[in-house]
Simulated assay, not measured.
Amino acid sequence: MTRRRGGSAARIRILGIPLRLRASWLIVAAAIVMIFGPQVDRIFDLGIAAYAVALAYAGLLLVSVLAHELAHALSARAFGWPPTEIELNLWGGHTEFLAGDSTPTKSLAVSLAGPAANLVIAGVGWWLIETFTPVGVLGMLASVTVLMNFLVGVFNLLPGLPLDGGRLVESTVWAATGSRLRGALAAGWAGRVVVAGLVLAAVWLLIADGGGTNLVVVVVAAMVSFVLWQGASDTVAAARAGLRRERGEGRGR
């Protein structure tokens, strides 16, 4: 994966893998506190402490994204592809690794490991809630952990790059045509379709909600859609360029 530079970051190691936490993550934390702090206060009447609970929401999301990226890194390592860095940032995170002999199956397995980790956490969390029935703030945080991991897992399974589910499209076309570039091109276009669907869903939500949807939610949704569209478009452009080079080399022989 492509390394993103710029911005300050804290860097540590976890399971031997460098972990970079970008300062931009604070924007995510601030947005979560702004959205959920007042809601927690209305439910539990905690006053200023409600914002500390909302900050715990942000911490749980950070852990969920970290679990997702670690699953990518460890599955890559299992295939002999050394992970070089995990980065957590404004947009969630990404994992870099040195891929050797890649195949459609290996590429898909590494990509789906992330969403699978989140869905496993959601399932285990749901079982713990059903078994121990936590209440109050603890019960809310447990439910939020389950919900966040479920949403992160399902969202990343959407079938279009740069989301993990896009590798399913890429690997299917790659296996059928023998060309990873054609697979990437198809997955990039699928990513554009996914973004268009997300935008339509957001517009429908705004209309159905009568304009009552939180402005922060709208802004975050717009930013995420923009980043996904940019990632999908970059994939399409790179795949087209690669296919043009292949055709040029073929004519030159």
Rank of each mutant, 00 (worst) to 15 (best):
D209Y: 00
I35H: 07
R167V: 04
A29Y: 06
A122H: 07
A56Y: 10
V135M: 14
W91P: 01
M1G: 07
L138Q: 12
R180A: 09
I207G: 01
I48G: 05
I86V: 09
A196P: 01
L46R: 10
L206R: 13
L62I: 11
A76E: 04
D234H: 03
R13W: 05
N149Q: 08
G123S: 11
M34L: 15
N89D: 14
A241C: 01
L141C: 10
A186Q: 04
T133E: 13
I12F: 11
A184Y: 00
G125L: 07
G211H: 05
R251S: 09
L206E: 11
G242I: 04
L163Y: 01
A184G: 11
L157T: 13
T133C: 03
D45R: 15
E130R: 14
G92S: 13
D164F: 05
G191Q: 05
N156S: 07
V28I: 15
A109S: 13
M1T: 06
L70W: 03
T95F: 12
T84E: 14
R13N: 08
A196T: 11
D234C: 00
G212M: 08
G123M: 12
V203L: 15
T105S: 13
L147V: 08
L15T: 03
H72R: 08
I35F: 12
L200A: 15
R180G: 06
A9K: 11
L88Y: 05
G178C: 08
A56Q: 14
S233W: 06
S8M: 06
E130M: 09
G125A: 08
R253C: 02
A116P: 04
G231P: 01
N156E: 11
D164I: 10
P82Q: 04
G93M: 07
L151V: 15
F44Y: 14
E96A: 10
G231V: 03
R3Q: 08
T105I: 14
G248N: 04
G197S: 08
V154G: 03
F79S: 06
L62G: 13
N214Y: 10
A99T: 07
L198M: 15
T2A: 11
I48N: 12
G59W: 07
A196W: 11
G7H: 05
L19P: 01
G100V: 08
H72E: 07
A222I: 09
R11T: 15
L62R: 08
W127D: 01
R11P: 00
A202I: 03
G136A: 09
L168T: 12
T131Y: 06
V63Q: 07
G100P: 02
K106Q: 12
G93E: 07
E249Y: 01
N89V: 04
E87M: 11
V193L: 14
L90K: 00
I32M: 15
G139S: 09
A232L: 03
E69M: 06
T177C: 06
L74I: 11
L62H: 08
G252N: 09
R180Y: 03
P162D: 04
R22V: 01
G7R: 08
V169Y: 02
G136K: 10
A241T: 05
G125P: 02
L119E: 07
L205D: 05
L163D: 03
M148R: 06
Q230M: 11
A54G: 06
R192G: 11
A56C: 13
T84A: 10
A23R: 04
R240D: 12
A67C: 13
E249L: 15
W126M: 10
A49C: 08
A54E: 05
V28Y: 10
